[in-house]
Amino acid sequence: MQSGIFHTQYAGDMSMRPTWPMRWRIVVVILFVLLFPWSADRYWLTLANQIGIAAIGAIGLNILVGFTGQISIGHGGFLAVGAYSAGLLATRAGLPMWLSVPLASLTTAVVGAFFGLPSARLKGLYLAIATLAAQEIIIWLLTHGDVIGIAESLSLPQPTLFGLDLTANGATDFSFYWIILVCLAGTVIFTSNLFRSRAGRAFVAIRDQDIAAQVIGVDLVRYKLLAFATSSFFAGLAGALTAHYRGIISWERFTVDVSILYLSMIIIGGLGSVSGSIYGAAFITLLPALLNNIGRAMGDTIPQINIYLPYVQQGAFGLAIVLFLILEPEGIVKLWRDVKDYFRLWPFSY
């Protein structure tokens, strides 16, 4: 039988990964992640990269919605700010990628804090609508590019990193795999640390009980804006990576649908969970690909299906999400926890 885990020092008690099974699991995950790109073809590499970028964005959104309890439908807009800032910094200012990406993320953090200002007064649905407005304002600015002096789409220079040509021998996907992986790892570590220290706890306090948070000394306005800024920083990072990876960006990739998709990721993955954000990002990225493959396989036998395929796919996508919410409203994290709990006591599962 299991016994409790005892620590003799506060530092040990507070460390993030206290048990050996957890460490083993991390080793397995790390090995997989390191070995995967050597055996994967372009199709799977592209998917993995999409998942990685989506995971960064989803963690960002989860910081705001899941951890701080501030609903936002403006995430697509913030991704756009990150993508276009990176694009403009790379083309106009000629900055290298290792500068354009962090600067674009910082820019997005500032823009996010600005559009977070309504959160000082608004909550829930009202805040959601205010962030929807932010989304629409950003997209309007981009479609009226002449206002800020940009065209509808923007082409970026060939990506290089410290003089290395990342596109050499058609290896773009392979090289970006590593860049995205490093960024995702950084995001995961930063966010996990954040929520075991003072500022992160204040975020969660605002979500749980904002009156009590005030009374213990949390400046609500300040911390809500900080949450918007931190969340948008990672949206900006995801956007900037997309821009450099794709090489060409246009506003259509960042409409309100994208905001909704990101919301689905964190709801399905698990609100207020870092690993849940990754599961959700994987689920939402893989599901359409899976439906596509099924559709194509069926298209061989039933040719007419191709006409209806897009509708069927959208319907199936919606259905999958709805089913998920009904069957496991706390997301994939909860599902995973249940499985773990089952095997932890196995075979004595009573």
């Binding site: 930063f190 966010t191 640390n193 220290s197 003072r198 204040a202 948070a213 213990i216």
Partner: peptide, 19 residues
């Protein structure tokens, strides 16, 4: 209880994330 220490502590988002 650690939230009760909020006003006596200093670390912010950045130092918290770096931990």
């Amino acid at each position: 209880l650690m939230l009760g220490r909020h006003v006596h502590m200093k670390s912010g988002v950045f130092s918290g994330g770096l931990y």
